[in-house]
């Protein structure tokens, strides 16, 4: 059973967000890293990039697949997790802490209303596994 910490928000594309005022830290969920398998490379966005809801802003790669990470929010990339360049497995090992991907300064807080709570995300995962 995939881990889903209660203090985070989730999206149907299996990203998680941690909100601190107008700054969101984004990563991929434990469920997602499990499905993706051993990650071998992460293509990170550039600091200062302006991104809009739904853009592909990072790519996570396993040996046999490359998957886009779509941003669930709009804003500006203010920080990236450079450790992932050399250690992509951090996403597999600690998806909710050391495996974070980027921090975004949000430009539209209303977008957050669309996010799922941990409880809602778990239910959503149950529908996928059924």
């Amino acid at each position: 059973m995939a881990d889903t910490p209660a203090h985070l928000k989730y999206t149907p594309d299996h990203e998680w967000l941690e909100i601190d005022d107008s700054i969101a830290t984004i990563g991929v969920s434990d469920y997602a890293q499990e499905v993706l398998g051993d990650l071998v490379f992460v293509e990170l966005p550039e600091i200062g990039n302006k991104i809009s809801l739904g853009d592909d802003f990072a790519v996570v790669e396993s040996v046999k697949a490359a998957s886009e990470v779509y941003t669930p929010v709009s804003g500006e990339v203010i920080e990236i997790n450079a450790d992932l360049s050399d250690n992509p497995q951090l996403i597999n090992e600690k998806p909710y802490s050391d495996g974070w991907i980027a921090r975004i300064k949000l430009s539209d807080l209303s977008e957050l209303k669309e996010m799922m709570t941990a409880e809602e995300y778990e239910e959503y995962l149950n529908t996928l596994e059924a």
Binding site: F41, V63, K64, A65, A66
Partner: peptide, 13 residues
């Protein structure tokens, strides 16, 4: 290795 650059995985990308 690094096959994710290639057409059989990345198709149009």
């Amino acid at each position: 290795t690094l096959s994710t650059r290639e057409q059989h995985i990345r198709r149009e990308k």
